[in-house]
Simulated assay, not measured.
Amino acid sequence: MDDTLDLVTVADAVLAAHAVIEENGTHEMKMMSRTLLFTVGKEIAQRGGLSCEPTDLHHAEPGWPLEQSKVER
């Protein structure tokens, strides 16, 4: 598995865990999860984005996808 696919796997796992932590975690857990999301995002940006197949990285987030009316505002 190449580094890009590994990063996609990490991003998917972190987003899924983040959804659970946001729903059930302590304040400290939420802060740590947000920091981890930020760190993964920085790594993706440093690598020039994800070059593999598009992935819906928000699949596990509560309330996703946003309602169209909220997006257009």
Rank of each mutant, 00 (worst) to 15 (best):
M1E: 11
M1Q: 15
M1H: 14
D2M: 04
L5Y: 06
D6A: 14
D6H: 10
D6P: 03
L7A: 13
L7I: 12
T9P: 00
T9K: 12
V10C: 08
A11P: 01
A13P: 01
V14W: 02
V14N: 02
V14C: 05
V14L: 06
L15G: 05
H18N: 00
H18P: 00
H18S: 03
V20Y: 04
I21W: 02
E22N: 13
E23M: 08
E23W: 05
N24S: 15
N24Q: 11
G25S: 08
T26W: 05
H27G: 07
M29D: 14
M29T: 09
M29G: 13
K30G: 00
K30V: 02
M31K: 13
M32G: 13
M32H: 11
R34N: 15
L37H: 07
L37E: 12
F38M: 09
T39W: 06
T39G: 09
V40L: 08
V40G: 02
G41I: 03
A45E: 14
Q46G: 10
Q46V: 08
R47A: 11
L50E: 03
S51K: 15
S51R: 15
P54A: 11
L57N: 00
L57S: 02
H58M: 13
A60M: 10
A60D: 08
G63A: 06
G63I: 01
W64K: 12
L66W: 09
E67S: 10
E67Q: 14
K70I: 10
K70E: 11
K70W: 09
V71G: 06
E72M: 12
R73K: 08
